[in-house]
Design a protein around this nucleic acid. Structure first.
Length: 478
RNA sequence: GGCGGCGUAGCCAAGGGGCCUAAGGCAGGGGAUUGCAAAUCCCCCAUCCCCGGUUCAAAUCCGGGCGCCGCCUCCA
Protein backbone atom coordinates (compact mmCIF):
# COMPACT_ATOMS: atom_id res chain seq x y z
CA UNK A 1 0.00 0.00 0.00
CA UNK A 2 1.65 3.16 -1.12
CA UNK A 3 1.26 6.49 0.56
CA UNK A 4 -0.82 9.42 -0.45
CA UNK A 5 0.42 12.06 -2.80
CA UNK A 6 0.32 15.54 -1.38
CA UNK A 7 0.15 18.60 -3.58
CA UNK A 8 0.61 22.25 -2.81
CA UNK A 9 -2.63 23.83 -3.93
CA UNK A 10 -2.30 27.43 -5.06
CA UNK A 11 -5.99 27.90 -4.41
CA UNK A 12 -5.76 27.23 -0.69
CA UNK A 13 -2.08 27.87 -0.24
CA UNK A 14 -1.79 24.54 1.50
CA UNK A 15 -0.22 21.17 1.07
CA UNK A 16 -3.19 18.87 0.57
CA UNK A 17 -3.69 15.18 0.18
CA UNK A 18 -4.59 14.47 -3.38
CA UNK A 19 -7.90 12.71 -3.86
CA UNK A 20 -9.47 12.86 -7.29
CA UNK A 21 -13.15 13.46 -7.58
CA UNK A 22 -13.67 10.04 -9.05
CA UNK A 23 -11.79 7.22 -7.37
CA UNK A 24 -8.71 6.25 -9.32
CA UNK A 25 -9.31 8.64 -12.20
CA UNK A 26 -7.54 11.97 -12.61
CA UNK A 27 -8.70 14.75 -14.88
CA UNK A 28 -5.71 16.93 -15.51
CA UNK A 29 -5.48 20.10 -17.58
CA UNK A 30 -2.29 21.96 -18.27
CA UNK A 31 -2.07 25.22 -20.17
CA UNK A 32 -0.52 24.73 -23.58
CA UNK A 33 1.16 27.20 -25.88
CA UNK A 34 -0.05 29.97 -28.06
CA UNK A 35 1.51 28.94 -31.31
CA UNK A 36 2.94 32.19 -32.62
CA UNK A 37 6.59 31.24 -32.30
CA UNK A 38 8.81 28.35 -31.26
CA UNK A 39 8.60 27.85 -27.54
CA UNK A 40 11.59 28.75 -25.42
CA UNK A 41 13.33 26.84 -22.72
CA UNK A 42 11.30 28.66 -20.06
CA UNK A 43 8.03 27.67 -21.71
CA UNK A 44 9.31 24.12 -21.70
CA UNK A 45 9.36 23.93 -17.93
CA UNK A 46 5.64 23.36 -17.35
CA UNK A 47 5.52 21.01 -20.33
CA UNK A 48 8.19 18.80 -18.83
CA UNK A 49 7.30 19.16 -15.21
CA UNK A 50 3.61 18.41 -15.65
CA UNK A 51 4.39 15.62 -18.07
CA UNK A 52 6.37 14.28 -15.13
CA UNK A 53 3.50 14.69 -12.71
CA UNK A 54 1.17 12.99 -15.15
CA UNK A 55 3.55 10.05 -15.36
CA UNK A 56 3.97 9.95 -11.61
CA UNK A 57 0.21 9.83 -11.12
CA UNK A 58 0.19 6.83 -13.43
CA UNK A 59 3.10 5.37 -11.49
CA UNK A 60 0.87 5.68 -8.43
CA UNK A 61 -1.81 3.72 -10.23
CA UNK A 62 -4.17 6.47 -11.32
CA UNK A 63 -5.89 6.48 -14.65
CA UNK A 64 -5.02 9.94 -15.93
CA UNK A 65 -6.81 11.83 -18.64
CA UNK A 66 -4.59 14.68 -19.65
CA UNK A 67 -5.57 17.68 -21.73
CA UNK A 68 -3.21 20.29 -23.05
CA UNK A 69 -4.62 22.89 -25.36
CA UNK A 70 -3.13 24.50 -28.40
CA UNK A 71 -4.11 28.14 -28.69
CA UNK A 72 -4.05 28.68 -32.41
CA UNK A 73 -6.12 31.83 -32.43
CA UNK A 74 -4.90 34.94 -30.73
CA UNK A 75 -3.78 38.50 -31.36
CA UNK A 76 -0.14 37.53 -31.06
CA UNK A 77 -0.66 35.11 -33.92
CA UNK A 78 -2.36 37.74 -36.02
CA UNK A 79 0.47 40.22 -35.44
CA UNK A 80 3.19 37.70 -36.04
CA UNK A 81 1.52 36.49 -39.22
CA UNK A 82 1.67 40.00 -40.62
CA UNK A 83 5.39 40.15 -39.86
CA UNK A 84 6.09 36.82 -41.49
CA UNK A 85 3.77 37.50 -44.40
CA UNK A 86 1.61 34.46 -43.72
CA UNK A 87 -2.05 33.98 -43.06
CA UNK A 88 -2.75 33.61 -39.36
CA UNK A 89 -3.89 30.02 -39.81
CA UNK A 90 -0.75 29.17 -41.76
CA UNK A 91 1.45 30.66 -39.11
CA UNK A 92 -0.43 28.86 -36.36
CA UNK A 93 -0.11 25.59 -38.22
CA UNK A 94 3.60 26.09 -38.73
CA UNK A 95 4.27 26.67 -35.05
CA UNK A 96 1.82 24.04 -33.89
CA UNK A 97 3.82 21.53 -35.92
CA UNK A 98 7.04 22.84 -34.42
CA UNK A 99 5.52 22.59 -30.97
CA UNK A 100 4.72 18.91 -31.43
CA UNK A 101 8.19 18.25 -32.79
CA UNK A 102 9.87 20.01 -29.91
CA UNK A 103 7.77 18.23 -27.33
CA UNK A 104 8.73 14.96 -28.89
CA UNK A 105 12.39 15.93 -28.81
CA UNK A 106 12.04 16.67 -25.13
CA UNK A 107 10.50 13.29 -24.50
CA UNK A 108 7.17 14.76 -23.46
CA UNK A 109 4.36 12.32 -24.04
CA UNK A 110 1.51 13.70 -26.16
CA UNK A 111 -1.54 14.67 -24.14
CA UNK A 112 -4.67 12.53 -24.45
CA UNK A 113 -6.54 15.57 -25.70
CA UNK A 114 -4.93 18.41 -27.60
CA UNK A 115 -7.84 20.67 -28.41
CA UNK A 116 -7.36 23.67 -30.67
CA UNK A 117 -9.29 26.85 -30.20
CA UNK A 118 -10.32 27.03 -33.84
CA UNK A 119 -12.18 23.75 -33.38
CA UNK A 120 -14.07 25.11 -30.40
CA UNK A 121 -15.32 28.46 -31.59
CA UNK A 122 -18.93 27.24 -31.70
CA UNK A 123 -18.63 26.01 -28.13
CA UNK A 124 -17.09 29.27 -27.07
CA UNK A 125 -19.97 31.21 -28.58
CA UNK A 126 -22.48 29.09 -26.71
CA UNK A 127 -20.48 29.49 -23.55
CA UNK A 128 -20.42 33.26 -23.86
CA UNK A 129 -24.13 33.33 -24.54
CA UNK A 130 -24.73 31.39 -21.37
CA UNK A 131 -22.64 33.86 -19.41
CA UNK A 132 -24.65 36.76 -20.81
CA UNK A 133 -27.87 34.99 -19.95
CA UNK A 134 -26.75 34.52 -16.38
CA UNK A 135 -25.82 38.17 -16.09
CA UNK A 136 -22.08 37.57 -15.93
CA UNK A 137 -21.34 39.21 -19.24
CA UNK A 138 -22.55 42.06 -21.40
CA UNK A 139 -22.24 43.12 -24.97
CA UNK A 140 -21.09 46.48 -26.21
CA UNK A 141 -21.19 46.99 -29.95
CA UNK A 142 -19.95 43.62 -31.11
CA UNK A 143 -17.74 42.88 -28.11
CA UNK A 144 -18.58 40.93 -25.01
CA UNK A 145 -17.06 41.56 -21.60
CA UNK A 146 -17.07 39.60 -18.41
CA UNK A 147 -18.65 41.45 -15.49
CA UNK A 148 -16.06 40.95 -12.79
CA UNK A 149 -18.14 42.53 -10.02
CA UNK A 150 -20.82 39.95 -10.57
CA UNK A 151 -18.59 37.04 -9.61
CA UNK A 152 -18.34 36.97 -5.86
CA UNK A 153 -15.20 34.91 -5.62
CA UNK A 154 -13.22 37.01 -8.05
CA UNK A 155 -9.63 37.10 -6.82
CA UNK A 156 -9.73 33.90 -4.79
CA UNK A 157 -6.87 32.25 -6.62
CA UNK A 158 -4.50 35.19 -6.83
CA UNK A 159 -5.42 36.41 -3.36
CA UNK A 160 -6.40 39.88 -4.27
CA UNK A 161 -9.50 41.95 -4.08
CA UNK A 162 -11.02 43.90 -6.88
CA UNK A 163 -10.21 47.06 -5.01
CA UNK A 164 -6.54 46.15 -4.62
CA UNK A 165 -6.41 45.50 -8.30
CA UNK A 166 -7.99 48.79 -9.18
CA UNK A 167 -5.65 50.82 -7.07
CA UNK A 168 -2.60 49.27 -8.67
CA UNK A 169 -4.08 49.00 -12.09
CA UNK A 170 -1.83 49.86 -14.96
CA UNK A 171 -4.47 48.85 -17.43
CA UNK A 172 -5.56 51.50 -19.80
CA UNK A 173 -9.19 52.16 -19.13
CA UNK A 174 -11.60 51.24 -21.83
CA UNK A 175 -14.37 53.70 -21.22
CA UNK A 176 -16.99 51.39 -22.64
CA UNK A 177 -16.46 48.81 -19.94
CA UNK A 178 -18.55 48.92 -16.79
CA UNK A 179 -15.47 48.26 -14.74
CA UNK A 180 -11.85 48.59 -15.78
CA UNK A 181 -11.19 45.02 -14.68
CA UNK A 182 -13.85 43.54 -16.91
CA UNK A 183 -12.17 41.49 -19.60
CA UNK A 184 -13.05 40.50 -23.14
CA UNK A 185 -14.85 37.25 -23.86
CA UNK A 186 -15.46 38.08 -27.46
CA UNK A 187 -13.78 40.62 -29.68
CA UNK A 188 -14.95 41.96 -32.99
CA UNK A 189 -12.75 41.30 -35.99
CA UNK A 190 -11.91 43.60 -38.83
CA UNK A 191 -12.08 42.35 -42.41
CA UNK A 192 -8.49 41.17 -42.48
CA UNK A 193 -8.60 39.44 -39.10
CA UNK A 194 -9.85 35.90 -38.59
CA UNK A 195 -13.46 35.98 -37.59
CA UNK A 196 -16.53 33.84 -36.99
CA UNK A 197 -20.15 34.82 -37.17
CA UNK A 198 -21.75 35.20 -33.78
CA UNK A 199 -24.82 36.78 -32.19
CA UNK A 200 -22.64 39.87 -31.73
CA UNK A 201 -21.38 40.01 -35.27
CA UNK A 202 -18.20 38.74 -36.84
CA UNK A 203 -15.49 38.26 -34.28
CA UNK A 204 -13.19 35.96 -32.32
CA UNK A 205 -12.78 34.74 -28.76
CA UNK A 206 -11.06 36.77 -26.08
CA UNK A 207 -7.93 35.71 -24.24
CA UNK A 208 -9.06 33.52 -21.39
CA UNK A 209 -12.21 31.89 -22.55
CA UNK A 210 -10.60 29.13 -24.59
CA UNK A 211 -9.05 27.39 -21.61
CA UNK A 212 -12.26 27.30 -19.62
CA UNK A 213 -14.16 25.94 -22.56
CA UNK A 214 -11.68 23.33 -23.71
CA UNK A 215 -10.90 22.14 -20.21
CA UNK A 216 -14.56 21.61 -19.42
CA UNK A 217 -15.41 20.22 -22.84
CA UNK A 218 -12.71 17.60 -22.71
CA UNK A 219 -12.68 16.78 -19.00
CA UNK A 220 -15.97 17.90 -17.51
CA UNK A 221 -17.24 20.84 -15.49
CA UNK A 222 -15.07 20.07 -12.50
CA UNK A 223 -11.55 18.91 -13.14
CA UNK A 224 -9.04 17.61 -10.64
CA UNK A 225 -5.87 19.41 -11.55
CA UNK A 226 -5.24 22.59 -13.46
CA UNK A 227 -1.63 23.51 -13.98
CA UNK A 228 0.50 26.19 -15.55
CA UNK A 229 3.23 28.73 -15.00
CA UNK A 230 2.91 30.98 -11.98
CA UNK A 231 2.81 34.04 -14.19
CA UNK A 232 -0.58 32.83 -15.37
CA UNK A 233 -2.19 33.01 -11.94
CA UNK A 234 -3.34 36.50 -12.64
CA UNK A 235 -5.19 37.33 -14.71
CA UNK A 236 -5.39 34.18 -16.83
CA UNK A 237 -6.29 31.53 -14.29
CA UNK A 238 -8.30 33.90 -12.16
CA UNK A 239 -10.41 34.69 -15.19
CA UNK A 240 -10.76 31.07 -16.13
CA UNK A 241 -12.23 30.40 -12.72
CA UNK A 242 -14.58 33.34 -13.04
CA UNK A 243 -15.86 32.13 -16.40
CA UNK A 244 -16.12 28.48 -15.58
CA UNK A 245 -17.66 28.75 -12.16
CA UNK A 246 -20.08 31.46 -13.18
CA UNK A 247 -21.35 29.23 -15.91
CA UNK A 248 -21.47 25.85 -14.17
CA UNK A 249 -22.08 26.97 -10.63
CA UNK A 250 -19.57 24.33 -9.64
CA UNK A 251 -15.97 24.36 -8.61
CA UNK A 252 -13.82 24.47 -11.74
CA UNK A 253 -10.52 22.93 -10.68
CA UNK A 254 -9.87 21.31 -7.34
CA UNK A 255 -6.09 21.55 -7.29
CA UNK A 256 -4.28 24.45 -8.90
CA UNK A 257 -0.60 23.83 -9.51
CA UNK A 258 1.90 26.43 -10.59
CA UNK A 259 5.48 26.02 -11.63
CA UNK A 260 8.15 28.58 -10.82
CA UNK A 261 9.66 30.52 -13.65
CA UNK A 262 12.91 29.95 -15.41
CA UNK A 263 15.40 32.71 -14.84
CA UNK A 264 18.38 33.74 -16.82
CA UNK A 265 20.99 35.88 -15.17
CA UNK A 266 18.65 36.44 -12.26
CA UNK A 267 15.78 37.63 -14.39
CA UNK A 268 12.69 35.93 -15.66
CA UNK A 269 13.16 34.49 -19.10
CA UNK A 270 10.46 35.86 -21.34
CA UNK A 271 9.75 36.74 -24.88
CA UNK A 272 8.98 40.33 -24.05
CA UNK A 273 12.34 40.76 -22.33
CA UNK A 274 14.04 39.10 -25.26
CA UNK A 275 16.36 37.13 -22.98
CA UNK A 276 15.22 33.71 -24.07
CA UNK A 277 16.59 30.76 -25.93
CA UNK A 278 14.44 28.40 -27.97
CA UNK A 279 14.10 24.90 -26.62
CA UNK A 280 15.06 23.47 -29.99
CA UNK A 281 18.35 25.36 -29.90
CA UNK A 282 19.20 24.07 -26.45
CA UNK A 283 18.46 20.56 -27.70
CA UNK A 284 21.14 20.98 -30.31
CA UNK A 285 23.71 21.24 -27.54
CA UNK A 286 22.25 18.90 -24.96
CA UNK A 287 20.32 15.69 -25.10
CA UNK A 288 16.79 15.49 -23.84
CA UNK A 289 17.59 13.69 -20.63
CA UNK A 290 20.10 16.34 -19.69
CA UNK A 291 17.45 18.98 -20.16
CA UNK A 292 14.87 16.98 -18.24
CA UNK A 293 17.29 16.29 -15.42
CA UNK A 294 18.00 19.99 -15.23
CA UNK A 295 14.31 20.74 -14.67
CA UNK A 296 13.75 17.96 -12.20
CA UNK A 297 16.79 18.81 -10.13
CA UNK A 298 14.85 21.71 -8.62
CA UNK A 299 11.40 21.52 -7.11
CA UNK A 300 8.86 22.59 -9.70
CA UNK A 301 7.52 25.53 -7.69
CA UNK A 302 10.85 27.17 -7.22
CA UNK A 303 12.56 29.53 -9.58
CA UNK A 304 15.24 27.84 -11.59
CA UNK A 305 18.27 29.49 -13.06
CA UNK A 306 19.18 28.59 -16.59
CA UNK A 307 22.86 28.42 -17.32
CA UNK A 308 25.21 26.40 -19.43
CA UNK A 309 27.04 25.35 -16.27
CA UNK A 310 23.86 23.94 -14.78
CA UNK A 311 23.18 21.97 -17.93
CA UNK A 312 26.71 20.60 -18.01
CA UNK A 313 26.40 19.54 -14.38
CA UNK A 314 23.15 17.84 -15.29
CA UNK A 315 24.83 16.00 -18.14
CA UNK A 316 27.55 14.69 -15.82
CA UNK A 317 24.96 13.55 -13.31
CA UNK A 318 22.96 11.70 -15.94
CA UNK A 319 26.16 10.10 -17.21
CA UNK A 320 26.88 8.71 -13.80
CA UNK A 321 23.64 6.76 -13.90
CA UNK A 322 24.27 5.49 -17.41
CA UNK A 323 27.77 4.35 -16.45
CA UNK A 324 26.17 2.07 -13.92
CA UNK A 325 23.41 0.93 -16.24
CA UNK A 326 26.04 0.16 -18.81
CA UNK A 327 28.07 -1.74 -16.24
CA UNK A 328 25.04 -3.87 -15.45
CA UNK A 329 24.33 -4.54 -19.12
CA UNK A 330 27.88 -5.70 -19.68
CA UNK A 331 27.43 -8.44 -17.12
CA UNK A 332 25.36 -10.35 -19.64
CA UNK A 333 23.01 -11.64 -17.03
CA UNK A 334 20.46 -14.18 -18.06
CA UNK A 335 16.85 -13.08 -18.02
CA UNK A 336 14.52 -14.40 -15.41
CA UNK A 337 17.06 -15.78 -13.00
CA UNK A 338 17.76 -15.14 -9.39
CA UNK A 339 14.69 -13.41 -8.08
CA UNK A 340 15.51 -14.57 -4.58
CA UNK A 341 18.80 -13.66 -2.96
CA UNK A 342 20.88 -16.61 -1.82
CA UNK A 343 23.67 -15.02 0.14
CA UNK A 344 23.64 -12.70 3.15
CA UNK A 345 25.06 -9.87 1.11
CA UNK A 346 22.39 -10.52 -1.50
CA UNK A 347 19.73 -10.35 1.19
CA UNK A 348 21.13 -7.12 2.43
CA UNK A 349 21.34 -5.56 -1.00
CA UNK A 350 17.85 -6.68 -1.83
CA UNK A 351 16.51 -5.14 1.36
CA UNK A 352 18.26 -1.88 0.56
CA UNK A 353 16.65 -1.75 -2.85
CA UNK A 354 13.22 -2.25 -1.34
CA UNK A 355 13.84 0.49 1.18
CA UNK A 356 15.09 2.87 -1.46
CA UNK A 357 12.06 2.29 -3.60
CA UNK A 358 9.85 3.24 -0.69
CA UNK A 359 12.01 6.22 0.09
CA UNK A 360 11.63 7.37 -3.50
CA UNK A 361 7.88 7.31 -3.27
CA UNK A 362 7.95 9.08 0.08
CA UNK A 363 9.95 11.86 -1.50
CA UNK A 364 7.87 12.12 -4.62
CA UNK A 365 4.66 12.07 -2.61
CA UNK A 366 5.72 15.31 -1.01
CA UNK A 367 4.40 17.66 -3.64
CA UNK A 368 6.22 15.87 -6.44
CA UNK A 369 9.59 16.45 -4.86
CA UNK A 370 11.73 15.40 -7.80
CA UNK A 371 15.08 16.55 -6.35
CA UNK A 372 14.40 14.27 -3.41
CA UNK A 373 13.44 11.44 -5.74
CA UNK A 374 16.59 11.91 -7.78
CA UNK A 375 18.66 11.80 -4.62
CA UNK A 376 17.25 8.35 -3.92
CA UNK A 377 18.00 7.16 -7.44
CA UNK A 378 21.62 8.14 -6.92
CA UNK A 379 21.66 6.13 -3.73
CA UNK A 380 20.54 3.14 -5.74
CA UNK A 381 23.40 3.82 -8.13
CA UNK A 382 25.94 4.00 -5.34
CA UNK A 383 24.66 0.87 -3.61
CA UNK A 384 24.68 -1.07 -6.86
CA UNK A 385 28.21 0.01 -7.73
CA UNK A 386 29.31 -1.07 -4.29
CA UNK A 387 27.54 -4.35 -4.68
CA UNK A 388 29.32 -4.96 -7.96
CA UNK A 389 32.69 -3.90 -6.58
CA UNK A 390 32.45 -6.57 -3.93
CA UNK A 391 32.78 -9.29 -6.50
CA UNK A 392 30.80 -11.93 -8.27
CA UNK A 393 28.70 -14.61 -6.72
CA UNK A 394 25.37 -16.32 -7.35
CA UNK A 395 23.52 -13.15 -6.36
CA UNK A 396 25.10 -11.06 -9.08
CA UNK A 397 21.79 -11.13 -10.94
CA UNK A 398 20.43 -8.76 -8.34
CA UNK A 399 22.36 -6.08 -10.15
CA UNK A 400 19.89 -6.47 -12.95
CA UNK A 401 17.03 -5.97 -10.52
CA UNK A 402 18.74 -2.77 -9.44
CA UNK A 403 19.14 -1.63 -13.03
CA UNK A 404 15.48 -2.25 -13.64
CA UNK A 405 14.61 -0.36 -10.51
CA UNK A 406 16.46 2.66 -11.81
CA UNK A 407 14.43 2.44 -15.00
CA UNK A 408 11.23 2.18 -13.00
CA UNK A 409 12.02 5.11 -10.76
CA UNK A 410 13.28 7.18 -13.65
CA UNK A 411 10.22 6.59 -15.79
CA UNK A 412 8.03 9.30 -14.23
CA UNK A 413 10.83 11.73 -14.91
CA UNK A 414 11.44 10.42 -18.39
CA UNK A 415 15.00 9.68 -17.31
CA UNK A 416 17.27 6.66 -17.66
CA UNK A 417 15.06 5.17 -20.33
CA UNK A 418 17.50 5.22 -23.19
CA UNK A 419 19.54 2.46 -24.59
CA UNK A 420 22.81 4.26 -24.89
CA UNK A 421 24.65 1.61 -26.80
CA UNK A 422 26.84 3.34 -29.31
CA UNK A 423 26.21 1.99 -32.72
CA UNK A 424 27.59 4.24 -35.35
CA UNK A 425 27.34 1.10 -37.41
CA UNK A 426 28.92 -0.19 -40.58
CA UNK A 427 32.53 0.28 -41.49
CA UNK A 428 33.26 2.66 -38.64
CA UNK A 429 32.07 0.14 -36.12
CA UNK A 430 34.34 -2.51 -37.59
CA UNK A 431 37.21 -0.08 -37.88
CA UNK A 432 36.95 0.71 -34.19
CA UNK A 433 36.96 -3.00 -33.45
CA UNK A 434 40.15 -3.38 -35.41
CA UNK A 435 41.88 -0.41 -33.81
CA UNK A 436 41.04 -1.62 -30.33
CA UNK A 437 42.15 -5.13 -31.13
CA UNK A 438 45.51 -3.86 -32.33
CA UNK A 439 45.86 -1.67 -29.29
CA UNK A 440 45.12 -4.56 -27.01
CA UNK A 441 47.78 -6.62 -28.72
CA UNK A 442 50.21 -3.81 -27.95
CA UNK A 443 49.06 -3.76 -24.36
CA UNK A 444 49.69 -7.45 -24.07
CA UNK A 445 53.24 -6.85 -25.20
CA UNK A 446 53.37 -3.99 -22.69
CA UNK A 447 54.07 -1.49 -25.40
CA UNK A 448 52.38 1.20 -23.36
CA UNK A 449 53.68 4.19 -25.29
CA UNK A 450 52.04 3.07 -28.50
CA UNK A 451 48.86 1.93 -26.78
CA UNK A 452 48.55 5.27 -25.02
CA UNK A 453 49.26 7.11 -28.24
CA UNK A 454 46.28 5.38 -29.82
CA UNK A 455 44.09 6.24 -26.87
CA UNK A 456 45.19 9.86 -26.99
CA UNK A 457 44.65 10.03 -30.74
CA UNK A 458 41.15 8.66 -30.41
CA UNK A 459 40.41 11.10 -27.63
CA UNK A 460 41.30 13.95 -29.94
CA UNK A 461 38.79 12.57 -32.41
CA UNK A 462 36.17 12.65 -29.71
CA UNK A 463 36.25 8.94 -29.01
CA UNK A 464 36.79 7.98 -25.43
CA UNK A 465 37.93 4.52 -24.54
CA UNK A 466 38.30 2.73 -21.26
CA UNK A 467 39.85 -0.57 -20.40
CA UNK A 468 37.79 -2.81 -18.17
CA UNK A 469 38.02 -6.38 -16.92
CA UNK A 470 35.72 -7.46 -19.71
CA UNK A 471 37.44 -5.62 -22.55
CA UNK A 472 37.81 -2.16 -23.93
CA UNK A 473 34.72 0.07 -24.18
CA UNK A 474 34.46 3.11 -26.33
CA UNK A 475 32.04 5.90 -26.91
CA UNK A 476 31.72 9.00 -29.00
CA UNK A 477 31.54 12.26 -27.12
CA UNK A 478 29.55 15.05 -28.63
C1' G B 1 2.04 51.01 -3.26
C1' G B 2 -0.77 45.94 -2.90
C1' C B 3 -0.29 40.48 -3.07
C1' G B 4 3.00 36.12 -3.18
C1' G B 5 7.68 33.70 -2.80
C1' C B 6 12.88 32.93 -1.88
C1' G B 7 17.92 33.34 0.93
C1' U B 8 21.31 25.91 3.06
C1' A B 9 28.88 24.16 1.07
C1' G B 10 32.94 26.78 -4.63
C1' C B 11 28.24 25.78 -7.78
C1' C B 12 23.24 23.26 -8.15
C1' A B 13 19.79 21.42 -4.48
C1' A B 14 16.63 18.39 -0.65
C1' G B 15 15.27 18.97 4.39
C1' G B 16 10.90 22.64 7.20
C1' G B 17 10.98 21.67 15.84
C1' G B 18 14.84 16.32 18.41
C1' C B 19 16.79 10.36 13.59
C1' C B 20 20.45 17.35 10.99
C1' U B 21 27.37 15.39 14.14
C1' A B 22 22.16 18.88 7.25
C1' A B 23 20.33 13.95 1.53
C1' G B 24 21.81 13.88 -3.42
C1' G B 25 24.44 15.88 -7.83
C1' C B 26 28.54 18.87 -10.04
C1' A B 27 33.46 20.67 -9.20
C1' G B 28 37.92 20.13 -5.94
C1' G B 29 41.57 17.57 -2.48
C1' G B 30 43.46 12.85 -0.34
C1' G B 31 43.42 7.40 -0.57
C1' A B 32 42.13 2.28 -2.68
C1' U B 33 42.02 -0.09 -7.48
C1' U B 34 44.60 0.26 -12.41
C1' G B 35 50.64 -0.63 -16.59
C1' C B 36 48.75 4.43 -17.00
C1' A B 37 43.94 6.54 -17.92
C1' A B 38 38.62 6.08 -17.40
C1' A B 39 34.90 4.13 -14.37
C1' U B 40 34.06 2.63 -9.28
C1' C B 41 34.62 2.66 -3.90
C1' C B 42 36.37 5.14 0.83
C1' C B 43 37.67 9.79 3.31
C1' C B 44 37.71 15.36 3.38
C1' C B 45 35.03 20.09 2.06
C1' A B 46 28.29 24.03 5.53
C1' U B 47 28.73 27.72 12.72
C1' C B 48 21.79 26.60 7.26
C1' C B 49 21.56 35.79 5.24
C1' C B 50 21.70 38.99 10.05
C1' C B 51 19.60 40.31 14.96
C1' G B 52 16.24 39.23 18.71
C1' G B 53 12.48 35.81 20.82
C1' U B 54 9.53 31.05 21.91
C1' U B 55 11.19 26.05 23.47
C1' C B 56 14.40 21.15 27.45
C1' A B 57 15.49 21.35 21.96
C1' A B 58 15.34 25.81 15.83
C1' A B 59 18.22 25.53 9.35
C1' U B 60 13.11 24.36 10.66
C1' C B 61 8.28 28.36 14.65
C1' C B 62 7.49 33.95 15.85
C1' G B 63 9.11 39.29 15.42
C1' G B 64 12.38 42.80 13.15
C1' G B 65 16.15 43.78 9.58
C1' C B 66 18.97 43.12 4.94
C1' G B 67 19.17 41.08 0.01
C1' C B 68 16.86 38.86 -4.28
C1' C B 69 12.66 37.40 -7.36
C1' G B 70 7.58 36.98 -9.33
C1' C B 71 2.53 38.96 -10.10
C1' C B 72 -0.57 43.43 -10.20
C1' U B 73 0.38 44.72 -18.33
C1' C B 74 1.05 40.02 -23.38
C1' C B 75 3.97 36.16 -21.02
C1' A B 76 4.86 29.14 -19.01
Amino acid sequence: MSGLLKLQNSLTGELEEFQPLEEGKVRFYSCGPTVYDYFHIGNARPFIVFDGLRRYLEFKGFDVEFTQNVTDLDDKIINRAKEEGLKPEELAEKYAQAYFEDLDSLGVRPADNQPRVTDYVEDIIEYVEALIEKGYAYEIVGEVFYRVREFEDYGKLSGRSIDDLKSGARVEVDVRKEDPLDFALWKSSTEDEPGWDSPWGRGRPGWHIECSVMAQKTLGETIDIHAGGEDLIFPHHENEIAQAEARSGKQFARYWLHNGLLKIEGEKMSKSLGNFEYARDVLRRHDRETVRYFYFSTHYRKPLNFSEKNLEDAASAVDRVYELLDRVDKLDLVEGEGEKPETPRGEEFSAKLRKLKEAYEDEMDKDFNTPGGLGIIFEVVKETNKFLDEGRDEDLVLARTAGELIGTLGEPLGLFQEDREESIGGVEEELMGLVLELRNDLREREEWDLADKIREGLRKLGIEIKDTETGTDWRVNN
